[in-house]
Design a protein around this nucleic acid. Structure first.
Length: 544
RNA sequence: CGGGGCGUGGCGCAGUCUGGUAGCGCACCUGCAUGGGGUGCAGGUGGUCGGAGGUUCAAAUCCUCUCGCCCCGACCA
């Protein structure tokens, strides 16, 4: 949808913002800036290029990995193009902030960042160079940090509210930036890269990777028929097994062997229809980080069978069982022998009671951890992320103030990012149809588009259109005036593509009856408008 | 990083296997017609065939090297 001329690609992950797109980006900037100022944050502009020594101090010269674009100047000094500004702002803070009386304080900037993404995709959504509003706050004590964090959460909510986007705030993993509590802001869109989970009945909302999957309610079904062996030649996936044995997928347990910390393997058992959650799995003490599947050799050694036929019965490695799998009775699982599975297996009868833990991704319909009902899942695009960093950077970079007792205390820090350019892309992903973009009123590059048909030849059309344009402009309404000498089809199709909310068509046909035609981008039935009252009418359409 | 694919007028592609005058659609320019959902007819402009080297009488085409881009994958038995 960005082919509408909003941006043009220069190279992988690099885009030029063309006039129409840039207007929208500036609207996002403006709204964001206003909300930042409203909570008392101070705008600054930090360098885009940072000296290596600063990043070595925080340890992230290494930790940030290949995402960091590194470079040298003529004197062979090392630099990076800033992907984020914790180091720089902490350096400012430790020079400028000496007393608790200067706190709390927060700074923000709207800056171009660069992250050397492994694989830039989805156009501007995951560009390498992008514009971000980033803020940093400094505090004495965690209470103050929490207060400011709350203010930012509300400010961000107001930004997305004002832009007219459907969004959700979810609990998030703080990843490599570090720190404790963090939340993400997601614009809901089917093309989103992230899965987010929430419950309408309570205030639970989280990124899928963090959402707990609760144990099922009720009693486990009682054991039935005795355990038996089934032939399953060449069947390596639970789906094939379920179909072959005519059992529901939930009843077919899969056993994943993953590499263990310091060698060997660990077994993870899940229901066939569930997926392992990497964050949860690597949270187990024995499991190696990052999560890696065992290779065929390791599988053969541990289970005396090829991959695909591994099961928990008689398996002599450390085994963790997901709550849902531990709750099943009379289930199917691998037989630890080539082409064999076991049927009607029961915990406590055919093998010991399992060590049940939360291993899987939550699925739609699961019980909410908030207790208010069941979970819903949707795709989202992460457009904002707020963190309580604590003293991670202030300690490693020695940024401290004196408290009221004259004792030196590392400052508590928060950081808050909002992707300006990504928000533009996300808005389009959320609001479009087969004809093009449908901008929310607040984000539209123009409020009104005037489509003057046959303007090159029809003097009356031109005069009326120009008059209307001036009259709208004088009232501060942003107008896009299509005075091209192009066929009606072209002009109308472009008007739809650009997604400007209010469209007025001026044509000879209408003018003969003294009327213009008005249509909202979301509606499909045009209405007639007397030429004289057009300005008034548009103003009332736009104001509310 | 691994696998696959593609680089030929501004854009999208054919031509490459089998070496021999570089082509098509769209866009652009000119003229005429048309004028409410990407309009028609006619005539035009525009190409170091990604780059370098090699084979050959002759290279977009064959060989070697190189650069760029796109897609998929990076583990869920």
């Amino acid at each position: 949808m960005l082919r509408s001329g909003m941006v043009r690609r220069l190279a992988s992950g690099l885009f030029t913002w063309m006039p129409m797109g840039w207007r929208v980006a500036r609207i996002v900037e403006r709204v964001t800036r206003q909300e930042m100022e409203r909570i008392g944050a101070h705008e600054v502009l930090m360098p885009a290029v940072h000296p290596a020594e600063l990043w070595r101090e925080s340890g992230r010269w290494q930790d940030y990995g290949d995402l960091l674009l590194k470079m040298r100047d003529r004197g062979e000094r090392e630099y990076c193009f800033g992907p984020t500004h914790e180091e720089v702002v902490t350096d400012i803070a430790r020079r400028e902030l000496k007393s608790y009386r200067q706190l709390p304080v927060s700074f923000f900037q709207i800056q171009t960042k660069f992250r050397d993404e492994i694989r830039p995709r989805f156009g501007v959504m995951r560009a390498r160079e992008f514009i971000m509003k980033d803020s940093y706050s400094f505090h004495l004590g965690e209470d103050s940090l929490r207060d400011t964090y709350e203010q930012y959460r509300e400010a961000y909510s107001r930004v997305f509210e004002r832009l007219g986007l459907k969004y959700r705030v979810v609990q998030a993993d703080s990843g490599e930036i570090g720190g404790s509590r963090s939340q993400e802001f997601h614009v809901l869109a089917d093309s989103g890269e992230d899965l987010i989970v929430w419950c309408e009945g309570d205030d639970f909302a989280a990124n899928l990777e963090l959402a707990p999957a609760l144990p099922p309610d009720g009693e486990r079904v009682a054991p039935g028929a005795a355990m038996s062996e089934a032939r399953t030649p060449g069947m390596r996936t639970v789906r094939q097994i379920a179909e072959h044995l005519d059992r529901p997928l939930e009843d077919c347990l899969k056993t994943l062997l993953v590499k263990a910390e310091g060698g060997g393997v660990v077994a993870l058992v899940l229901c066939g229809h569930h997926e392992v959650n990497e964050l949860k799995a690597t949270g187990l003490p024995e499991v190696a980080k990052p999560l890696q599947l065992a290779n065929a050799q390791e599988v053969a050694q541990a289970a005396s069978s090829p991959p695909g036929f591994v099961g928990p019965v008689g398996l002599r490695v450390k085994t963790y069982v997901d709550h849902a799998a531990a709750h099943r009775g009379n289930f199917v699982c691998g037989g630890n022998r080539r082409d064999k599975h076991l049927v009607d297996v029961n915990w406590g009868r055919d093998l010991p009671e399992p060590e049940a833990v939360d291993l899987r991704n939550a699925v739609e319909g699961d019980r909410s951890p908030g207790g208010g009902g069941t979970l819903q899942i949707a795709r989202g695009i992460e457009v904002g992320h707020i963190f309580q960093l604590g003293d991670k950077y202030s300690r490693s970079m020695r940024a401290a103030v004196l408290d009221e007792n004259g004792a030196e205390q590392p400052m508590q820090m928060g950081c808050y990012g909002l992707g300006v350019t990504r928000t533009v892309a996300a808005a389009i992903e959320q609001n479009h149809d087969e004809r093009g973009i449908i901008w929310p009123e607040a984000m539209a590059p123009f409020s009104v588009v005037l489509v003057a048909l046959n303007i090159a030849r029809d003097k009356k059309v031109r005069a009326t259109a120009e008059q209307l344009r001036e009259s709208l402009r004088s009232r501060g309404i942003e107008v896009l005036f299509d005075d091209r000498d192009a066929s009606p089809g072209v002009k109308l199709a472009d008007a739809d593509l650009f997604g400007i909310p209010h469209r007025v068509v001026i044509s000879a046909r209408g003018l003969n009856q003294g009327t213009l035609e008005y249509k909202h981008r979301r509606s499909d039935k045009p209405e007639r408008l007397s030429a004289d009252e057009a300005t008034e009418f548009l103003q009332t359409q736009i104001e509310p």
